Amino acid sequence: MGLAVQGSTAKHGISLRTLIRKTGEASGPCLLVAGDMQGAVFGGLLDCPLKPTPKRKYQGTNQTFVFTTLHGEPRLFRATGANRYYYICMNDLLAFGGGGNFALHLDSDLLSATSGPCETFGSLCLAHNPEFDLKNIEVWGFVHISNYLT
């Protein structure tokens, strides 16, 4: 098993629609990795390809998680079982968690985001501040590597 970049704001521009479209190349789960301007790295696990819904409808499974490096070592927050608010994917927003706040909420322009205490994952704010500018976003897809390919 390996990782391959599916989408990146550095490579593909700052558009949520483009990022969603690029996840269509993934056959399995993807890891969304983002960062704030102060150096925190955070994100979460998504089912891919992403399927935008016309209304706010939660997707995902209890395998979904969020993480942060805000306090040094990476810290993983798994689903607590408090609810099934794993993630929402629409053409104008992508958000992890719910119950109080989103653990991570990205707008369509992928320039700014929010994060707050979230019941779904038992997480605190993943970034340095609850409202912040994004430095970069990448989506990494998990791929199977065959021993027979050279």
Rank of each mutant, 00 (worst) to 15 (best):
M1N: 00
G2A: 01
A4W: 00
A4H: 00
T9V: 08
H12P: 05
I14K: 02
S15A: 08
S15P: 11
L16Y: 11
R17T: 15
L19E: 08
K22S: 12
T23E: 03
S27A: 11
S27R: 12
G28V: 06
G28P: 04
G28R: 11
L31V: 15
G35P: 11
D36W: 08
M37F: 06
M37H: 05
G39Q: 04
G39H: 02
G39S: 04
G39N: 05
A40D: 09
V41D: 01
V41P: 02
F42T: 05
F42V: 06
G43I: 04
L45T: 06
L45P: 01
L46T: 07
L46R: 03
D47F: 02
P49A: 03
P49T: 10
K51N: 00
T53N: 05
T53W: 02
T53R: 04
T53Y: 01
K57Q: 14
Y58M: 09
G60Q: 00
G60I: 00
T61A: 06
N62A: 13
N62S: 14
T64G: 07
V66Y: 03
T68R: 03
H71V: 00
G72M: 07
E73L: 08
P74N: 06
R75L: 08
L76P: 01
F77S: 07
F77V: 13
A79L: 04
A79Y: 06
G81V: 13
N83T: 14
R84G: 01
Y85H: 13
Y85V: 09
Y87C: 04
M90K: 12
D92I: 06
L93N: 09
L94F: 03
L94T: 10
A95H: 04
F96Y: 07
G100D: 07
N101D: 10
F102Y: 15
L104G: 09
L104C: 05
H105W: 13
H105R: 11
S108L: 09
D109M: 09
D109V: 14
D109T: 15
L111D: 12
L111V: 15
L111K: 15
L111W: 13
S115D: 10
C118P: 08
C118S: 07
S123I: 12
L124F: 07
C125N: 12
H128G: 12
H128S: 15
N129W: 10
D133C: 10
L134K: 10
L134W: 09
K135P: 06
K135C: 13
I137L: 12
V139W: 01
G141P: 10
F142V: 15
H144T: 13
S146C: 09
L149F: 12
L149T: 14
L149S: 13
